[in-house]
Amino acid sequence: AYLKIAEIRTLLPGIPVLALTATATPAVIKDIQEKLLFAKENVFRMSFERKNLAYMVRKADNKTGELFHLLNKVQGSAIIYVRSRQKTKETTELLLNEGITANFYHAGLNNDAKDLRQKQWQSGECRVMVATNAFGMGIDKPDVRIVIHLDLPDSVEAYFQEAGRAGRDGEQAYAIILYSNSDKTKLNKRIADTFPEKEYIKQVYEHLNYYYQMAMGDGLGCMHEFNLEEFCRKFKYFPVPVDNALKILAQAGYIEYTDEQDNPSRLIFTVHREELYRLHKSGAEAETLIQSILRSYTGLFTDYVYINEESLAMRTGLTRQQVYDLLIM
C-alpha cells in the first residue's frame, strides 16, 4: 500500500515526508526511498543492539513446562508468538488453567474482538497475549518484560521485529526462543512449502490448464472461481505448497490469483448444543446442513471457525446458494 503514498506528495507539494522502519534490509530501504520519490537518499540508522534486551535460545523438549517456568520467573507483561491460530487458543487455555491471565490474537478475529483484547492487554487487565505474527503493527506497550517464541519465525528480520516489542521502556527485558529438535524439520518443510521447486510450479500451472479445460496460454481476460481444496483433491496435492506456487505464478505475471483464503466465510454457533438439536423443525435441508457442519468442523460453539461453502454443498447435495441462504436465516 505504501507504493501509493507518493501520489499524496503530488497533491501536497513541499510537505516533508519521513519514512520509518524497524527491520527493513538495505535493498528495501533503497526501494522505499525511490518509491516515495525522495529527492536524494537520506538515511538515519541505529543499531539493532539494545543493551537492556537479552536474547536467548533455550532447548526445551517440554516447551509447555518451560513456558510456565519462564512466566513465573519473569514477572510483568508478556507476548507469546506461535505459528497457527489454533495454537493461540490452545496455549491460552493452558495458561488460564495455570492461573495466568491470558488471551489470544490472530488475523481471523473481527476488529471489535482485536481492539478489546489489545486494550485489555495494554491496560494490564490481561498479562499475556498469545498471538500469531498478526499481532504486530502499532503494538507499542513500553513495559513488556518478556517475548517468548514457541515456534520459529519466518526470518531473522521478523524475529528482531517481534522480539523488539520487549523492553521499550529501557528496563531489563528478555526475548527467548524455545527450541526443540523437531523445529528444524518443521522449518525446513516450511521453506520447501513456501518456495516450491521450479518443476513443481510448472506442474501446478499445467494442471491448472487441465482443471479449466483450456490450452496452455489461453484464458487471457477470463475470470474463474477457484476451489483450492477441490483442485488439490483432484491432482493429489497438498494445499499449502500449491497456494504458494500460485502466488509465485501471479507475481511472475502468468496468472492473476486473488487469495480468498484471507477472507473466507466464518461461522459460530451462538446457541447451546442442546438448542441446536431442536432446530430440526427448520426443515430437512437445514438439519442435513447442521449435521454436516458438526461432522466437518470443531470449536464452533466457542469461537469463529472458517468454513468452505463449496465443500458443504458437495457433502449435503445442496447448492452453494442454498448453503449460504440457510446459514444466514
Score class of each variant (00 low, 15 high):
residue 137 M to W: 01
residue 55 Y to W: 10
residue 251 Q to E: 12
residue 154 D to I: 15
residue 77 S to D: 07
residue 272 H to Y: 10
residue 189 K to Q: 15
residue 24 A to C: 09
residue 253 G to W: 09
residue 276 L to M: 15
residue 85 R to L: 00
residue 253 G to H: 11
residue 184 K to A: 13
residue 6 A to V: 14
residue 182 S to M: 12
residue 46 M to C: 04
residue 10 T to Y: 10
residue 329 M to P: 03
residue 193 D to W: 10
residue 120 Q to F: 04
residue 145 R to Y: 07
residue 311 S to E: 15
residue 170 G to T: 07
residue 142 P to S: 03
residue 120 Q to K: 14
residue 316 T to L: 02
residue 231 F to M: 04
residue 326 L to K: 04
residue 185 T to D: 11
residue 245 A to I: 04
residue 30 K to L: 05
residue 244 N to P: 04
residue 220 L to S: 07
residue 291 Q to H: 14
residue 7 E to Q: 12
residue 299 G to K: 05
residue 172 Q to C: 00
residue 232 C to Y: 00
residue 4 K to E: 10
residue 35 K to E: 12
residue 129 M to R: 03
residue 320 R to D: 06
residue 5 I to K: 02
residue 268 I to P: 01
residue 202 K to R: 15
residue 144 V to L: 09
residue 150 L to A: 02
residue 86 Q to A: 12
residue 124 G to N: 07
residue 313 A to K: 07
residue 156 V to C: 06
residue 152 L to H: 12
residue 188 N to Q: 14
residue 289 L to G: 01
residue 63 K to I: 01
residue 43 V to K: 11
residue 55 Y to C: 11
residue 174 Y to W: 15
residue 240 V to C: 00
residue 174 Y to D: 08
residue 271 V to M: 13
residue 211 Y to F: 15
residue 290 I to M: 09
residue 210 Y to C: 03
residue 255 I to R: 05
residue 119 K to L: 07
residue 310 E to W: 10
residue 4 K to I: 08
residue 49 E to H: 15
residue 262 D to Q: 09
residue 17 V to E: 00
residue 79 I to P: 01
residue 56 M to L: 12
residue 58 R to G: 06
residue 264 P to A: 02
residue 106 H to E: 06
residue 102 A to Y: 06
residue 230 E to F: 01
residue 123 S to E: 11
residue 203 Q to T: 12
residue 125 E to L: 06
residue 4 K to M: 01
residue 20 L to H: 06
residue 256 E to S: 06
residue 314 M to P: 00
residue 20 L to A: 10
residue 143 D to T: 01
residue 2 Y to Q: 05
residue 125 E to Q: 13
residue 137 M to H: 04
residue 158 A to F: 08
residue 61 D to A: 09
residue 31 D to K: 14
residue 109 L to Y: 00
residue 93 E to N: 14
residue 123 S to R: 10
residue 153 P to K: 06
residue 77 S to N: 06
residue 296 S to N: 07
residue 233 R to E: 12
residue 198 K to N: 06
residue 42 N to V: 01
residue 270 T to V: 11
residue 100 I to P: 00
residue 284 A to P: 06
residue 170 G to I: 05
residue 36 L to F: 01
residue 106 H to T: 05
residue 35 K to D: 09
residue 289 L to A: 06
residue 176 I to F: 00
residue 274 E to Y: 08
residue 105 Y to S: 07
residue 57 V to F: 12
residue 325 D to V: 07
residue 18 L to R: 06
residue 56 M to N: 11
residue 52 N to G: 08
residue 273 R to E: 15
residue 311 S to Y: 07
residue 224 H to A: 13
residue 157 E to S: 15
residue 225 E to P: 03
residue 288 T to Y: 00
residue 246 L to V: 02
residue 296 S to C: 08
residue 211 Y to N: 05
residue 32 I to N: 00
residue 85 R to G: 02
residue 36 L to C: 02
residue 93 E to F: 03
residue 235 F to L: 09
residue 272 H to Q: 14
residue 156 V to P: 09
residue 190 R to S: 13
residue 205 Y to G: 05
residue 116 L to G: 01
residue 262 D to W: 02
residue 13 P to R: 02
residue 245 A to C: 04
